[in-house]
């Protein structure tokens, strides 16, 4: 399990320095795949006899379907349609973003191991990976300017959050998980549509163009 969560972390870190959408998506697929396995694995280890296979399996399958298959498919399709194979514009250099990513991992380690977090049922073995993934997802959105990258960043964040939920609570209520996956799916769909529109109008997927509205 540690290995998987390590993959989980490495993929998100790797993403920080990629400047190619397709590559990011593949990394995302890898991350989601590890998440979906973790979603079964973590409860199995931590709950022992109380482990509810049905519950966890459904969650994992959902994760797999939505995050490994559907969302990357949507993003890749959109990306194909946009035919933008050029490099993703970034707010900072790749090296710097990687550096900050590493710093964020360190920060999440500090958060995770600090007294305040550890005394209040806020951490478990995997929450470190989850928190750093959330942070990196957020930072990914900040550092990469392309529209699709922001979608990917959101998914990375969500992945982190899901890992966090699994690591803390061994899985959320089913109806809730259904809801969140549905929302995420529709959300990414809508974002994809919008990316399409924006590309149609602005002929670019750089968020730099989206700064008309201010004040």
């Amino acid at each position: 399990m540690n290995f998987l969560s390590f993959i989980f972390l490495i993929t998100s870190l790797w993403m920080l320095q990629t400047r190619n959408v397709t590559k990011s998506v593949y990394l995302l697929i890898l991350q989601s795949l590890s998440l979906s396995i973790l979603m079964i694995g973590i409860p199995m280890i931590s709950l022992g006899y109380d482990f509810n296979l049905f519950h966890s399996a459904i969650a994992a399958i959902l994760t797999f379907f939505v995050k490994v298959v559907l969302l990357p498919f949507i993003i890749l399709r959109v990306n194909k349609k946009l035919r933008s194979n050029d490099l993703i514009p970034m707010n900072m250099s790749q090296g710097l973003s990687l550096l900050i990513g590493i710093f964020l991992i360190g920060f999440s380690q500090v958060l995770n191991s600090s007294g305040f977090f550890s005394t209040s049922h806020l951490s478990s073995g995997y929450s470190f990976f989850a928190i750093s993934s959330i942070l990196i997802g957020c930072f990914y959105m900040l550092s990469h300017r392309a529209l699709l990258c922001q979608i990917i960043g959101i998914i990375v964040m969500e992945n982190g959050i899901f890992l966090y939920s699994v690591s803390l609570t061994n899985g959320m209520p089913l109806i809730f998980e259904f809801g969140t996956f549905f929302d995420l799916l529709v959300g990414v769909l809508v974002m994809g549509i919008m990316t399409n529109y924006i590309h149609g109008l602005f002929e670019s997927t750089d968020t730099e163009n989206l700064t008309e509205l201010k004040g």
Partner: peptide, 14 residues
């Protein structure tokens, strides 16, 4: 689907 409205929508959803 004007530039500004798409920009607003994008910011909104993100």
């Amino acid at each position: 689907r004007k530039r500004a409205s798409l920009e607003a929508a994008w910011k909104y959803i993100i």
